[in-house]
Design a protein around this nucleic acid. Sequence first.
DNA 1: GAGTATTTACTCGGATACTCGCTGTCCGAGTAGGGCCGG
DNA 2: CCGGCCCTACTCGGACAGCGAGTATCCGAGTAAATACTC
Lengths: 160, 160
Amino acid sequence: MRLTEGVEWALHCMWLLAACQSDEAMTTRHLAEFFGLPEAYLAKVLNLLVRAGLLKATSGPRGGFRLARSATEISVAEIVEAVEGRTALFHCSEIRQRGPVPLTGQACEVPCGIANVMEKAESAWWRELSLVRVSELVESSGVQSRQRVEAWLSGLAGAR
Amino acid sequence: MRLTEGVEWALHCMWLLAACQSDEAMTTRHLAEFFGLPEAYLAKVLNLLVRAGLLKATSGPRGGFRLARSATEISVAEIVEAVEGRTALFHCSEIRQRGPVPLTGQACEVPCGIANVMEKAESAWWRELSLVRVSELVESSGVQSRQRVEAWLSGLAGAR
DNA sequence: GAGTATTTACTCGGATACTCGCTGTCCGAGTAGGGCCGG
DNA sequence: CCGGCCCTACTCGGACAGCGAGTATCCGAGTAAATACTC
């Protein structure tokens, strides 16, 4: 089992959009170029973020993506959920109810102990992710990372 | 992303082996039949548990699987790790170092903030899993579940 | 009757196909800005 | 010179292949018990 590659991309893209905090929208091409990612597939991931209401997309010239809300109002958990879906991790297939001596009736209305444990662990995971906002990611990133963004942005402005 | 089906099977099998606590070994056929699972593939999962040192396998007639340790000494985390591997969940592919303006040098010796968050959340997940032992799963399982096991065991003894 | 070699049936273990979801790619629909034309 | 219309280029969005991990399955190696035979 492994988290989708798109999760990492989405997190970094959200970070970049929050870090440059310019009024300009960023196109898929820009984001893909900055991180060296396949442009077409990244568009798919960004699309998920738009559907989740985390990004605003504008079409046409000078269009692109913007944060839908302030970076202080977006948690890491929301981004992960947007890309992976909340269905994640452990799924109890109720094998209690299979086999020659299945467990039936009201005994199955309560989830089994195994599902309980997994659910609890999963909650802890989501809780950790929901505690961190995108703005904190920007703040905790090193000086060099921010310099890197500025250098790239100025190079972009020069080309324009 | 989703956890492997084998994880659920492994957890339930460990639970069953701990619940019946008989000195008899249980064969793959028995376990598969009890849960209504494909026998051949279940064998693969059980094999992983043996390699991890959680089960003891004996060949030949009256052979099968036994718990390698007491059920109080086996945590859920160990079972999940045995089946899925510890490599799990988020893997940082260091996209910081890609693109036209890569981040290089000693700045990359420290993991990025995103990897930090994901790592922290993952630790919380494993921690929750390591807090629960198999013996607790048996205790917390309802009376009906234990009756189910006994009914099946007696039916097995009758057939023998 | 006791001990031993043999047979036999049973169990695990690794090597082998198949399927589904993630990865990667493409082209079409929609939009906003810029240019052109007319007044 | 100014306003409106059209055109163009740019952007996102959904539809279409490719590959790898997970899923499912089979048959062979090894083992311990039961059996038959010998002393």
